[in-house]
Design a protein around this nucleic acid. Structure first.
Lengths: 160, 160
DNA sequence: TTCATAATTGTATATTTATTCTTGCGAGCT
DNA sequence: AGCTCGCAAGAATAAATATACAATTATGAA
């Protein structure tokens, strides 16, 4: 849906520039931008964006974005995201799983850069990485399935 | 007050080892540990600890600690432990568990020093470590609980 | 197109969380 | 001792947020 995506964008914009302390407040800001929706929908949007209600400077509550970058899980919509340079040349060769560990093999010297980008996304499915020269080890969250890990990584490694 | 501080400690311990999705749930866990309090008090505790309700891997809500660093507001108790240089600057940021592995994130370049110190102690709970630039992975002994690991690490990382 | 399926949303409501108001307690003071 | 100040906490309640359900709308396959 076109409406929803631009609304999510608007939410991100607002939250990154203003101090919003409640959903109702955010609802008002969105209304100013011409978005008409209910608190229920907003709650769902925030959940999807993984926005959290945090505690700001004066002890006041504040909604904050947690993701450096957005990644859409299952592209319900075609929605061609722009492709970053990382995706162009990530050196990815293979991935294998064992227990709660995944091992990615890369071309020589690519591992640490790839790990850096994975870390950056702070996928909840991946609690940490460690890299050698051509190998990245991922520790997978206990609740995460391998499919979920692959989907998450696809943001960075489309050719996975 | 002594009670409150140990309760805050307990909250941190619980949140760092379990998936807690509501205050009531946390209240139950605290009850198991012998803490008796109401939701109102817990809400205030969480606010003080700047715990946020976030979204975990399965789309489930989860309370997470935002500040790995401990801060006691009022030095109610003198308790001035001598602080070693390691403790001064260990670069510790966060710790997460999955299976028998713990992942510690540190400030850039701190990981190997921290791992070195952990190795040095030869904690029976930790059978080995491996470090990158800002990540230390710990392999946990089969018999060791996560609480035990945290307690052990507290020797080196008081702000854990 | 038409049907089936999945996604989006609102309404109403349940659930959850924050806060107001009050009491009790202990430290430090005179 | 009595007094005050400030923190801690519970009870009750307000406020905020999540969700079950139903209706609508989009998407895709044949």
């Amino acid at each position: 849906m076109k409406v929803k995506n631009s609304r999510l964008d608007a939410i991100r914009l607002i939250l990154s520039t203003q101090e919003i302390g409640s959903q109702e407040e955010l609802l008002n800001e969105l209304a100013k931008e011409g978005f008409k929706l209910t608190q229920a929908t907003l709650s769902r949007d925030l959940h999807q964006l993984r926005v959290v209600k945090s505690v700001g400077v004066q002890g006041r509550y504040r909604y904050v974005l947690t993701r450096p970058h957005q990644y859409r899980h299952e592209g319900t919509e075609g929605e061609m995201r722009p492709v970053s340079p990382v995706q162009e040349a990530n050196g990815f060769l293979s991935i294998k799983f064992s227990g709660n560990i995944a091992v990615i093999h890369t071309k020589p010297s690519y591992a640490s850069t790839l790990a850096y980008h994975i870390d950056n996304y702070e996928f909840p499915e991946i609690i940490g990485t460690i890299a050698g020269d051509d190998t990245v080890m991922l520790i997978i969250a206990e609740e995460a399935s391998r499919g979920a890990v692959l989907r998450a990584l696809r943001t960075i490694i489309p050719n996975i």
